[in-house]
Amino acid sequence: MISVGRRFAAALTSGIAVAGTVYVATGLAFFTSNGAAAENLPAIAEYFLPMALVLFVTYSIVSALEIHRYWFTAAVVGLVLGMVSAIAGTALGIIATGAELNAEAFTFIVATLLGTNLIFVVVTIIAAVTVGRRVWNALTVVPAQPTQLIALVRAPSSQLGEGELTHLDRVPVDAELADSQWEGYVAALRANGFETIEVPAADELADSVFIEDTVVVFGEVAVLTSPGAESREAEIEAVRVSVTELGLELHEITQPGTLDGGDVLKVGSTVYVGRGGRTNAEGIRQLRAIVSPLGYSLIAVPVEKVLHLKSGVTALPDGTVIGYPDLVDNIDLYDRFLAVPEAEGAAVVVLSDDAVLMSSSAPKTAALIADLGYRVVTVDVSEFEKMEGCVTCLSVRIR
């Protein structure tokens, strides 16, 4: 967003640039068309000065309102302001001579639009489309900065082992080892260019480390989810605060809709959403209504064999969907599918165009992906895998 001071300065500068250009160009046109006689200069300068002053004021106002943003609106602005300035400026010139501004004078003023002042109107249109817009953009458009990689993370609860389970039998979880593995995971993100932002930990929320389920990000738009497990509903509020502080446009899935972020797989402009135990039809409908205007196509995918869609499939940087066939319900739904040899290898986090992060529990899959020309970073997340988690669950990546 442009600050008020910057907008004001840019508007005034644009006004000066347009009015000055029109004043000089129109004056020179009349000077040369009248034989370039030096004695004519004062009269020409005096005649067009009131018009230029009116143009400066009106164009500055238009600039501040950004009505001239597009070339065609700038052309309309030039036409309207050229005529207004020519009429008002000529009227001021007549008043300055002490003459009465009556019906006859007004008829004369209007007639000048097809005669003496026509060149002023034409030059104003050209200047508004070219000079005005270029000066405005030069003063207001901030050069694009390199894309900043951000990852939201949340430290594990000491009660991680008491979290929700759907497809796996419960086994003991080593909380201290989970803490150590989480720190290694965060360190791997940082080592690969991500700035990590920690959402405040919540020890009373056993599954809160799986932050991916709470929010899905589409460019500058963040969609807060509606967890399918009632025990996880309280995870949303702290994430809402962090997302708001990042300045993202906020949307939200509301009851009776349910949606877990682990069920959302983005592949280019296609969004696959798992319809399973945690995400229902209403949640998918609400997400479709949010992302369709953003240019995304949403494809609903039935999920029965795993907790979340991304427990069974994820995608490589080139868009190839990978998965462990025994855990994939509908392989034919994906345009390009690559089978991997280990269940733990189905989940990868895209770090860059040529690098992925994955679990060290899947060495055969790591070798397969490396053989495709990718740099593979592995981390130990075994304690989270006991709770049906994976590398994608532990962060929300924002690009």
Rank of each mutant, 00 (worst) to 15 (best):
177 L>Y: 14
136 W>K: 11
265 L>R: 05
365 T>M: 14
98 G>L: 11
249 E>S: 14
41 L>D: 01
380 D>F: 01
315 A>K: 00
13 T>R: 06
374 Y>E: 07
278 R>V: 09
381 V>F: 00
177 L>W: 11
134 R>W: 10
203 D>K: 06
90 T>C: 12
45 A>S: 05
84 V>N: 10
148 Q>E: 14
202 A>P: 00
118 L>S: 12
358 M>N: 03
148 Q>L: 12
120 F>Q: 03
2 I>A: 11
128 A>M: 03
2 I>V: 15
212 E>Y: 07
137 N>F: 11
191 A>K: 07
250 L>F: 02
296 Y>K: 04
57 V>L: 13
325 P>V: 01
4 V>A: 09
108 F>Y: 15
233 E>V: 14
125 I>Y: 00
348 V>M: 02
332 D>P: 02
70 Y>L: 14
5 G>C: 01
139 L>H: 06
322 I>A: 03
70 Y>H: 14
281 A>M: 12
74 A>N: 02
72 F>Q: 07
10 A>S: 10
174 D>R: 03
184 G>F: 06
68 H>D: 15
240 R>F: 13
180 S>K: 12
182 W>D: 08
212 E>T: 07
72 F>M: 09
172 P>K: 01
306 V>T: 10
263 D>I: 04
138 A>L: 12
75 A>P: 09
146 P>Q: 08
355 A>Y: 00
65 L>K: 03
284 I>W: 02
141 V>T: 15
25 A>W: 08
15 G>N: 09
57 V>R: 08
287 L>W: 08
133 R>F: 11
109 I>V: 15
120 F>E: 02
315 A>S: 05
15 G>H: 08
127 A>V: 09
13 T>E: 06
221 V>M: 11
78 G>W: 00
321 V>E: 08
244 T>W: 11
135 V>C: 01
63 S>Y: 03
374 Y>R: 04
333 L>Q: 01
108 F>H: 14
20 G>E: 00
223 V>I: 13
373 G>D: 08
84 V>G: 10
273 V>A: 05
295 G>Y: 11
391 V>E: 03
149 L>D: 01
79 L>V: 07
157 S>M: 02
361 S>W: 05
161 G>L: 12
246 L>P: 10
221 V>K: 05
320 T>Q: 06
51 M>K: 13
176 E>D: 15
206 A>F: 09
46 E>V: 09
340 V>E: 11
308 H>P: 02
252 E>Q: 14
267 V>M: 11
42 P>V: 01
129 V>S: 03
345 G>N: 08
107 T>M: 15
266 K>C: 12
368 L>H: 01
100 E>F: 13
203 D>S: 07
264 V>I: 03
124 T>P: 07
369 I>H: 08
263 D>Y: 10
109 I>R: 14
215 V>G: 05
167 H>Y: 10
115 G>W: 09
354 D>I: 00
179 D>M: 13
156 P>E: 10
245 E>F: 14
46 E>H: 06
287 L>G: 12
272 Y>R: 13
78 G>V: 02
13 T>N: 04
50 P>S: 09
86 A>R: 02
160 L>G: 05
56 F>V: 09
370 A>H: 04
119 I>N: 03
180 S>E: 13
300 A>I: 01
233 E>T: 13
54 V>W: 09
146 P>W: 04
277 G>F: 03
